[in-house]
């Protein structure tokens, strides 16, 4: 059994003299490297495209919802974070006199995702048969109450695309839900705009949809929930406190206990 023999050669007298401060060489070297810090609220570096952020419920190009209320997302959810209640489009048809919420037979009447259970695993996205549910890159989700972090259908629905017609309204004439699934519907039609003008004359999406029908505006493009714009130095915390949903419920304890 021999004594320990270091593989590295022993240092000379100068090396031994400088050994206690040799570590500063690392510090000094780092000073001339580029800064790695991301200035998060002031400059938001977008996450990867594949990032699993908050969900959104998509719409077809004419503004009808894609969700058919099948509850597959709720069934597959490992955390039981999703609650769906489907309803018949026939009921909406009778109530509104011809309009419907989604093409086909059923639509999602109640759609809730509890973000305090959701682990953003994306199984619901894989389960969705109509690509109604997808995930966006928005990750700013913090909130002061448990109830406020249950997102309802209106919070999850994709913002209405410029030129799309807000539902409920009839399907494009001469189509079935199959044509919708095959992406053959590219925008609202004159008959749909006419129907909405008759039933809801003060609908906000009417003007833009009319422009699309007349050909003066391009067909609606799919929209996504996006990150809030970068904050300025002065209002970084205020921007953070202001959720995209304006927090449905105020803090239960008013910041106190």
């Amino acid at each position: 059994m021999s004594d320990y023999q270091p593989i590295r050669p022993a240092k000379g007298p100068v090396g031994r003299l400088l050994a206690p401060v040799a570590g500063f060489g690392v510090t000094l070297g780092s000073m001339f490297r580029p800064t790695v810090t991301e200035e998060y609220p002031f400059e938001k570096v977008p996450p990867q495209q594949r990032f699993h952020g908050r969900h959104q419920l998509n719409r077809y190009a004419d503004g009808l919802e894609k969700c058919i209320g099948c509850e597959l997302c709720a069934w597959v959810c490992p955390a039981d974070a999703i609650y769906v209640e489907g309803a018949d489009n026939a009921d909406v048809l009778a109530e509104t006199g011809g309009g419907q919420v989604s093409p086909g037979e059923r639509y999602g009447r109640v759609y809730q995702i509890n973000y305090l259970r959701c682990i953003l695993c994306g199984l619901c996205i894989e389960a969705c048969p109509t690509r109604a549910l997808t995930m966006t890159n928005d990750y700013e989700l913090a909130g002061p109450s448990r109830a406020g972090l249950i997102y309802e259908k209106q919070d999850l629905l994709a913002p209405l695309a410029q030129g799309a017609l807000a539902g409920p309204h009839p399907m494009v004439e001469g189509t079935t839900d199959t044509e919708y699934y095959q992406n053959k519907v590219t925008g609202p039609t004159a008959a749909q705009v006419e129907w909405v003008r008759e039933h809801r004359p003060d609908d906000e999406s009417l003007a833009a949809a009319t422009a699309v029908v007349e050909g003066t505006a391009p067909a609606p493009q799919p929209t996504k929930h996006t990150l809030r714009p970068p904050a300025t130095k002065a209002n970084a915390t205020r921007e953070a406190a202001k959720s995209s949903l304006d927090w449905k419920t105020a803090p239960a304890n008013g910041g106190m206990r």
């Binding site: 998060y40 959701c118 990750y139 913090a142 002061p144 970084a236 304890n253």
Partner: peptide, 25 residues
């Protein structure tokens, strides 16, 4: 005082929650 979803939340989400808490404070 403040809940932060995510599993796990990315550091940006934590900073966002902390800034929201700062406003509360």
């Amino acid at each position: 005082d403040i809940y932060l979803p995510g599993c796990p939340p990315r550091p940006e989400m934590l900073i966002n929650a902390i800034l929201a808490l700062h406003q509360q404070i």
